Amino acid sequence: MSLYDEDQPKKKTEHEIGSDLSLLSVDELNARIALLTEEIARLEAERNRKSASRSAAESLFR
């Protein structure tokens, strides 16, 4: 490992909505798609958990 490795800017691994995609390679685009697909699944799981919780609470107070 070189002393200069720390000086190199690290590639951004996150995706920013609306960012310029023109400089990304196909592999980088695929990685971002995978990242966003995983995030969508995580968001949907949380939404489902909260919906179930809300439904249970609503049925309790009816």
Rank of each mutant, 00 (worst) to 15 (best):
S59P: 00
S59L: 12
S55D: 14
L43F: 09
R54T: 07
S51M: 11
E58N: 13
Q8S: 05
F61S: 13
L3T: 07
N48I: 04
R54A: 12
S22L: 10
S2D: 11
E39P: 00
S2Y: 07
K11P: 02
R32D: 02
L24A: 06
K50F: 08
K10P: 01
R42E: 13
L24T: 03
N30T: 06
L3H: 12
L23C: 07
V26I: 13
Y4V: 07
R42C: 07
L3W: 10
D20S: 14
R42S: 15
K11E: 11
S59H: 14
I40P: 02
S19M: 14
P9A: 05
D7M: 11
H15R: 04
L29T: 05
S22Q: 13
Q8Y: 06
S51V: 11
R47V: 10
L23E: 14
E39D: 15
E16W: 00
E58Q: 15
S22V: 02
A56N: 10
P9T: 03
Y4L: 11
F61G: 02
L21E: 11
R54S: 09
Y4E: 11
R49C: 02
A41E: 11
T37G: 10
E38P: 01
N48R: 13
S53L: 12
S55F: 08
D5C: 05
L3C: 06
D20F: 05
I33D: 01
P9E: 10
F61I: 11
R47C: 04
K50E: 09
S53Y: 06
